[in-house]
Structures are given as structure tokens and as C-alpha cells.
């Protein structure tokens, strides 16, 4: 009985339901094992959830346009020698969680929505769905997400045109998964730490899966032993992964890029700084008039592989170091 009372004392549930426009929802919870849920049906709504403690859960569900769920912990990230241009720092609304074993979820359906989650701690999970209903694809969504700590998970799915995802993970053993469907999508992520995993996908629509065009995937990895995979289907797509090693004795990372379609470009840059060994990079391109480039500027025992099918493709590999392996297949 005493245990039950203790659980009740530290557990609170807050749920907000709003069905009109221009509403503001603010939830602040201090403690552990709290649950917060906000549902907004309409337009121009704003949500903010702040949780300090461990094992908290929060979710925001928006149905409508121009809803705002922006995070409090987003900072501009200065990436050297990169074309990354993260938005300016945003203050105020959103889901912010300070602690460990927290979960945050945002589900938005409509156009011009914004979502952000800020998490500081370990073993956290953040999930953002924006217009994941293929019958009602959204447009111009911008998800801004940040996780600080180790063993964190980030999962983001967008369906629509002119979608944007900006993500930052600081720490080790983190996992990111970003999926974007339709045209003109942009996915940019920075992972700062070791043993991180990254998956970036950009495809066409559900009706025309192979026509994902004019998409951009950028990833910037700072650390060692990271794994990254980018996959694009369509034409006029661009993917880039840049990796910086830190010379701390751990082996380099494994990077893979796959593109299906025509007029695509892919580039992988490994070992921009430091002198990391045992990096692996591979690019697979199926289609015509594609361009692939792998640069492994430092370290030894690196491997680079480019496979290109059909015609008018270009492959370029630059390696500086010893005991490196290059394989180019053009068939």
C-alpha cells in the first residue's frame, strides 16, 4: 500500500484536448514517471511540454495547419568546412525533457507545421511523425530535433513536399532514422560522438515510389566507429556524408550510400581531420548520368568501393595513406 501511494505521489497525468484555432497549451512537470498528452485539432496552435526527471513520457498530436511544437534546447551548430546551415536558435515552446529514460512523440497532420524535441540525458527516445498519412501528404514541414546524451533514439518520418529535418545528436551509441517521401526534401543531421548509427532515406510518394526527386541528404559525423547509410530513389538527388575522426585509437566508421535513378550525385568524405584507420565507404548507383566520389584523406587500411550500373556515370576515389583498397565497378 505504501508503495502504491509513493507511485501515485510522483506520477501525474496531464491531457489537453483542443478543437479550435490559435490555442496555446503549456505543460510543466517536475518529477519522474509523468505522462503528458496534448491533442490539438485546428490551426495555428502552439504546444509546449517541459519535463524534468526520469522516465517521463509526452506526446503532442496536431490535426491541421501551421501548428507549432518547437523545442527549447535547440542550438545552432557550427560545422567547420561544411555547407550545413542550421536555423538560428529557437527559444520557447515545444517538448523539452531533462533526465533519462524519457520518451517524446509528436504527430502532426497538415501543412506548414513545425515540431521540435529537446532532450538532455541518456536512454531517451524521440519520435516525430509529420503527415504520415499518404492520402493527406503535408507540405513545408520543418522538424527540428536535438538529443544530448548516450543511448538515445531518434525517429522521424515525413510525407510531403518541401520537407525539412534538422537533427543533432551529441553522445555515444545513439541511433537516428529519418524517412522522407515525395519531392524537394532536405535532411541534415550532425552526430557528435562514437558508435552512432544513422539511416537516412528519401523516396518518392506512395503512389510513385521511384520518383523522389530533388532531395538532399547531408550528414556530418564527428567521432569514430560510426555507421551511416543513405538511400535515395529518384532523380536529381544529392547525398553527402562527411566524417571526422578523432584519433583516439578506435577504428573508423562504415558509410554506405545507395542511389537508384538518374542524374544523382553522391559523395563521401572520411577522415577530414585526425588520422583514423580502417574506414569503409561504398556508393551504389543504379541508373544513368550519376556522379560518385569518395575521398579518404587520412589514415591507413581504408576501403572505398563504387558500383555504377548502366551509362554515362562518373566515379572518383582519392585516398591518402597506406594499405588502402579501391574497387570501382562500372557495368
Amino acid at each position: 500500500m505504501k508503495t502504491l501511494l509513493n507511485i501515485l505521489a510522483i506520477t501525474s497525468v496531464i491531457a489537453n484536448f483542443m478543437f479550435s484555432q490559435s490555442n496555446l497549451s503549456i505543460v510543466s512537470q517536475l518529477g519522474s514517471a509523468n505522462l503528458s498528452s496534448s491533442i490539438q485539432n485546428g490551426g495555428d496552435n502552439q504546444s509546449r511540454i517541459e519535463q524534468v526527471g526520469d522516465a517521463n513520457e509526452s506526446s503532442v498530436t496536431d490535426y491541421g495547419d501551421k501548428n507549432l511544437v518547437t523545442g527549447a534546447f535547440f542550438h545552432a551548430f557550427n560545422v567547420p568546412n561544411s555547407s550545413f546551415s542550421f536555423p538560428a536558435p529557437m527559444l520557447g515552446d515545444g517538448i523539452s525533457q531533462l533526465g533519462s529514460y524519457n520518451k517524446a512523440a509528436i504527430n502532426q497532420t497538415g501543412d506548414f507545421n513545425k515540431a521540435s524535441i529537446g532532450q538532455i540525458g541518456n536512454d531517451n527516445a524521440a519520435v516525430i511523425f509529420q503527415s504520415v498519412n499518404p492520402v493527406l501528404p503535408g507540405n513545408n514541414n520543418s522538424g527540428i530535433d536535438q538529443l544530448n546524451g548516450n543511448e538515445n533514439i531518434f525517429y522521424h518520418i515525413q510525407i510531403g513536399t518541401n520537407e525539412e529535418v534538422f537533427a543533432l545528436q551529441n553522445g555515444n551509441n545513439n541511433y537516428s532514422h529519418i524517412e522522407q517521401y515525395n519531392l524537394n526534401s532536405r535532411s541534415e543531421i550532425v552526430q557528435n560522438g562514437n558508435y552512432n548509427n544513422l539511416y537516412q532515406y528519401q523516396f518518392g510518394s506512395a503512389e510513385n515510389y521511384n520518383d523522389g526527386s530533388y532531395n538532399i541528404s547531408n550528414a556530418y559525423l564527428i567521432g569514430n566507429s560510426n555507421y551511416a547509410y543513405q538511400n535515395q530513389v529518384g532523380k536529381n538527388n544529392y547525398s553527402n556524408i562527411a566524417s571526422i575522426g578523432c584519433s583516439n585509437g578506435t577504428p573508423g566508421g562504415e558509410i554506405k550510400t545507395s542511389q537508384t535513378g538518374n542524374l544523382n550525385s553522391a559523395s563521401i568524405e572520411e577522415g577530414l581531420l585526425g588520422n583514423i584507420d580502417d574506414n569503409s565507404a561504398s556508393i551504389l548507383q543504379i541508373g544513368n548520368i550519376n556522379n560518385a566520389q569518395i575521398s579518404q584523406e587520412s589514415g591507413n587500411m581504408n576501403s572505398a568501393k563504387i558500383s555504377e550500373s548502366t551509362d554515362n556515370n562518373k566515379a572518383k576515389i582519392v585516398q591518402t595513406g597506406s594499405m588502402n583498397l579501391t574497387v570501382i565497378l562500372q557495368k
Binding site: 566515379a315 579501391t326 570501382i328 557495368k331
Partner: peptide, 23 residues
């Protein structure tokens, strides 16, 4: 007309480059 082009630059020791073009 060039169908496919491959370029490799390796600076160092014990490097290996394998290129196969069958188009």
C-alpha cells in the same frame, strides 16, 4: 562519347585499386 569514367588517386604504400568496366 564516354560511357563511364573512373578516377583513382592513391598516395601511400600497399594500396590496391581494382577497376572493372564492361559497358
Amino acid at each position: 562519347n564516354i560511357i563511364n569514367s573512373a578516377s583513382v588517386s592513391q598516395t601511400g604504400n600497399r594500396n590496391e585499386a581494382f577497376i572493372e568496366q564492361i559497358r
